[in-house]
Structure formats: structure tokens, C-alpha cells
Simulated assay, not measured.
Amino acid sequence: MWKYTIQVDGMMCGMCESHVNDAVRKAFPVKKVTSSRSKKETVVITETELDQEALQAAISATGYDVGEIRKESWQKKGLFGR
């Protein structure tokens, strides 16, 4: 699985975070997406690699500024995910 951390400027409230999350969900089959206006970032967890240009375009289309996109391998941690 993959974790993408995207710098997103311009989110001011919870609705802004929701708009970005919805745009990502509509554009890609993701496992999880969370946005934080305080951290100015969106984190996407997915089973497949994403087209980073398309990811940037999907978020930019909502009116927010997209900066750096970092991709890293991700494994679920928890009670059974050793």
C-alpha cells in the first residue's frame, strides 16, 4: 500500500477539508483520505500507485494550492498488523 502526503494551502475550515477529501475520493479508489487545515496537508492511503499529476489536478480543481507530494510505502499498524 502507498501513503501520499500532499501539501495543500488555502483550507480554512472543516468544509474546506471535506471538499478536498471528496475530490480525491471521486478521482481515485482510495482506502482513506484525511485533510488537516492546521497542518496544511492531505494524507491519502491507497492500494495502488496514483498518478501524481492527476492527484494534483483533482485537488487544484477545488480551488486550493497544491505543493509538494510525498509518496512512501505504507503498512497498516495496529493490533493484528505486525
Rank of each mutant, 00 (worst) to 15 (best):
V44Q: 05
A61K: 12
G14R: 09
E53Y: 06
Q75G: 12
R82P: 13
K71D: 04
T42V: 15
E49M: 10
K76P: 09
M11P: 06
C16L: 04
W74E: 01
E41C: 11
F28E: 10
K40D: 07
K71S: 10
Y64E: 03
W74T: 06
K3L: 08
G78R: 10
Y4I: 04
G78H: 12
L79W: 02
Y64D: 00
K71V: 10
V8C: 05
D9S: 05
G67C: 00
T5M: 08
T34S: 13
S60P: 02
K3T: 05
T42I: 08
P29V: 05
F80N: 10
V66K: 00
A23V: 12
T48Q: 15
V44K: 01
E72I: 07
Q75K: 15
S73H: 12
Q56P: 03
K77H: 11
C16S: 15
Y64S: 00
D65V: 01
D51C: 11
C16I: 03
D51N: 14
S18T: 14
W74M: 06
Q7T: 04
E72T: 14
Y64V: 02
D65Y: 05
A61G: 11
K39M: 13
A27N: 05
S18Q: 15
A58D: 10
S35K: 03
V8D: 04
M12H: 14
K71Q: 08
E72V: 10
G14L: 00
D65R: 08
E41P: 07
G81Y: 05
M15F: 05
A23D: 09
R82H: 10
K26N: 12
G78A: 11
L50K: 05
W2L: 09
W2N: 11
S36P: 07
I45H: 10
I59M: 08
I69K: 09
S18I: 14
G81N: 13
A61E: 11
E68S: 02
L79D: 03
K71L: 07
G78N: 09
A54H: 04
A61F: 08
T34I: 14
E41L: 14
E49T: 09
T5G: 01
G63M: 09
Q56N: 12
Y4M: 00
M15G: 12
R25H: 15
G67E: 02
A27Y: 00
S35W: 03
S60G: 15
I6N: 01
C16W: 01
K31M: 11
S36G: 08
R70D: 09
K39E: 15
V24H: 08
S60Q: 15
T5D: 07
S36V: 07
D51A: 06
W2A: 02
P29H: 04
Y64N: 00
A23W: 04
D65H: 08
A57Q: 15
C13G: 04
I59D: 04
A57R: 14
K32L: 10
Q52L: 14
F80G: 07
D22S: 11
D51L: 13
K77F: 09
S38K: 13
W2Q: 03
G14H: 12
